[in-house]
């Protein structure tokens, strides 16, 4: 393993950047805090860089995000229009349409680029919602003891044993068809994992003496949770977020494929559903089916690789292969 990572000059970095430098004259606490944060971010990045798979995942994500953001410039704003489709229906890949056309004659490459927007948006929003709920529940369940913690952990456990996909499908099927429904369905069904992790970390943090000191100095519940516990669970939450995003993107594709997505927007799962409805399977039109699935897999894999790299930077004992 060392042979592959030898080209990365991580250990040879100048030592003086490792510790926050002592100020020449007295600086404000805020400035000190920012210096410390900058240094720990730099240290994090130096470690992260040594994880090849993580760097690869990050690069893939940057590329795809750029493509999604600049979709109107890259492929034109009218690529989703059924009435102004440029080609004929179900054309195989050709020079003009590198990935072929769908049953309405739209350019599949353009649709794929547009689909990235929905898949990334839904994935990010759903993961953000899920992790936000999980973090709040986890911190409060770890901080407050007694009946509140008992009740809330019972609720968490109950969500944890629910078959996530079944519950998400049920939620999505009883609400209106829109991307917000999908975000909500994924968000409210996937938070318990984060809640359990955050609660465990909160309990560990709260047993440290400085929490007792803060309490003795008159720090209230809100102060302790926001200023002492939250910064300590944030790294864990960050790693968890990247992992949740990849499963949220997969779930979004699944719901869209089942016809529970917003029918008016193009998403990768929706493209697969269109392909199936157009008879691409029995006709053997693999060129229609393959690209959306590959796109989903690449994005999900990229987020997973980033998440694993972040996880192993924060917790080297996991022994994640580089």
């Amino acid at each position: 393993m060392t042979a592959e990572t030898a080209d990365v000059p991580a250990p040879q970095e100048p030592e003086n950047t490792r510790e926050p430098q002592l100020p020449k004259e007295a600086r404000s606490p805020r400035a000190l805090a920012w210096t410390r944060r900058r240094h720990s971010a730099a240290r994090f990045w130096r470690e992260y860089r040594t994880h090849r798979a993580g760097v690869f995942g990050l690069a893939a994500l940057v590329l795809i995000t750029l493509a999604a953001v600049f979709a109107p410039l890259l492929v034109g704003a009218d690529a989703q229009s059924v009435t102004e489709a440029p080609g004929e229906a179900m054309q195989s890949p050709s020079g003009e349409f590198p990935l072929g056309t769908d049953q309405f004659g739209r350019d599949l490459l353009a649709l794929l680029v547009w689909g990235a927007r929905i898949s990334l948006t839904v994935g990010l929003l759903a993961a953000f919602l899920s992790v936000a709920i999980g973090t709040v529940v986890g911190i409060t369940a770890g901080h407050f003891r007694g009946w509140y913690a008992t009740v809330i952990m019972r609720v968490t456990d109950w969500f944890l044993v629910m078959p996530t996909l079944v519950l998400a499908i049920a939620l999505a099927s009883v609400m209106d068809r829109s991307i917000w429904t999908i975000v909500l369905a994924i968000g409210v069904t996937t938070w318990p994992t984060t809640a359990r992790l955050v609660r465990a970390q909160t309990l560990a943090v709260e047993s440290r003496p400085y929490i007792e000191r803060a309490q003795a100095l008159g720090g209230g519940h809100g102060h302790i949770m926001a200023r002492h516990v939250l910064p300590n669970v944030m790294p864990l939450v960050l790693a968890q977020t990247t992992l949740v995003i990849s499963s949220a993107i997969l779930t979004e594709a699944t719901l869209a494929f089942l016809g529970l997505g917003d029918p008016t927007v193009v998403s990768w799962g929706g493209l697969l559903q269109d392909a199936r409805e157009a008879g691409a399977v029995s006709a053997g039109d693999w060129w229609y089916l393959a690209p959306p699935g590959i796109a989903i897999a690449v994005v999900a894999l990229a987020f997973t690789l980033c998440g694993r790299a972040v996880e192993s930077v924060l917790n080297p004992r996991l022994g994640v292969s580089r």
Partner: peptide
């Protein structure tokens, strides 16, 4: 990372 239904279709 691959959607199961997509792998099935392929």
């Amino acid at each position: 990372s691959v959607p199961s239904f997509w792998l099935g279709l392929l």
